[in-house]
Write a protein that binds this DNA or RNA. Sequence first.
DNA 1: CCATCTTTGTGCACGCGTTCACAAAGACAT
DNA 2: ATGTCTTTGTGAACGCGTGCACAAAGATGG
Lengths: 254, 254
Amino acid sequence: MATGRTHRPATRSRGIPEATVARLPLYLRALTALSERSVPTVSSEELAAAAGVNSAKLRKDFSYLGSYGTRGVGYDVEYLVYQISRELGLTQDWPVVIVGIGNLGAALANYGGFASRGFRVAALIDADPAMAGKPVAGIPVQHSDDLEKIIQDNGVSIGVIATPAGAAQAVCERLVAAGVTSILNFAPTVLSVPDGVDVRKVDLSIELQILAFHEQRKAGEVAAASDGGVPAAAARNESADQGPDGDMPAVMPA
Amino acid sequence: MATGRTHRPATRSRGIPEATVARLPLYLRALTALSERSVPTVSSEELAAAAGVNSAKLRKDFSYLGSYGTRGVGYDVEYLVYQISRELGLTQDWPVVIVGIGNLGAALANYGGFASRGFRVAALIDADPAMAGKPVAGIPVQHSDDLEKIIQDNGVSIGVIATPAGAAQAVCERLVAAGVTSILNFAPTVLSVPDGVDVRKVDLSIELQILAFHEQRKAGEVAAASDGGVPAAAARNESADQGPDGDMPAVMPA
DNA sequence: CCATCTTTGTGCACGCGTTCACAAAGACAT
DNA sequence: ATGTCTTTGTGAACGCGTGCACAAAGATGG
């Protein structure tokens, strides 16, 4: 999972739990696959297996949406696709801007999963003047001087930040000031935003670190003995920390 | 958040809750920034603010690691950096392979956040023969025929999958068979793996869909009235679903 | 129309995670 | 030494999410 949301103490937006909302896209994907195979109905058991969750959870999730589904039969695939799409707001068009067209930004611009779900890349924005006009994924990159105008002209409410960490907070503030109220942040920084703005964070290195934790545990249930009283700052350099570059800017917003 | 882990019913690995483990990298990043500024100590309040969590949670998280920290003063930054690094297993070197060197794979190969945390990109692997030998981020791409040999020669236990969805499960099985026990999956598919293998998923389009849900709620607390009895399969095509491409393969593993 | 069989929808209990609030611990000044 | 002040570490309460297990609902067949 991309790492969790920021702020928002699990606000149950109208009765649909956050945890359920986070799973709806999963169900939608599985249902879309079934739909393409022209499968008319599916039981909670089958769909749960396809989505990788247990069936009781799936049924409870759907119960928050309403009583779609027929006892003894299952769920109508097409109908459920529609209902979930509507609930997620995917029946409307969402113009999105991507700020920071480096390797990652370009990958995002090319990513098919956006367009196929009602998300339209309205503009690519970068601070490098050399990038301006250069097409990426068929869309010409625009300079960040025009950020505010681009947001307003296109009615953008969702922004994707793929800049270096050092630039993220400033970009974020400009996006918010221009009217963006949802941000997907790929920069390895904690963004601070005013109330009413949603931020979701995707942090590649955090995911790897979590895996490393479990990996270490699997590998050395035994070797984890050299514990105890390390003299404060003595140890540390073993093999990690090679290369002063990395994902962290020398200065940090706060 | 990249979306959550698959399987593993919140196994509390030795007393450190999963939720805490997921936040340790966050603390580590904030602490590293402080360390670079040569800040000697930090209070739970300050550090919590920098990491974007509340201070009580941070203190409880640290209490699972042990009683580092001095009452009345705070935490020794260097010492804490070391302790968290050790706990996460970052004091050792983790060779990683990236499979699928498309836009995203290339972006990952270039991503600085990996190298700076003890993760070393041991190899790039792609199924396209035309890619073989071509250097990406200074590392020559190798053909997937040699996947097993690469894994074994380098002692790789962590694999990153950045292939199209259709290829992900097959790649996953080959990785696991070759000895990989932790997988970071960027392909929009549910991977099924044997017990003992950890999978974490990062799904870009899911994150956007969750944002869209909240965005819709913010935008139209009012306009959400056309509800009720939709005739099963009638609606659906409005503006979403343009383009049959996307993140979902026509056939799905299961 | 009745019986049987399948599958949904949900009440309930349990466990994890979060937060509060405070006692204990130590620094620091006098 | 003693007192004050800061900040940690944690017991306890609470709330959310999960999973069990079953009653209700409807399909299907005779």
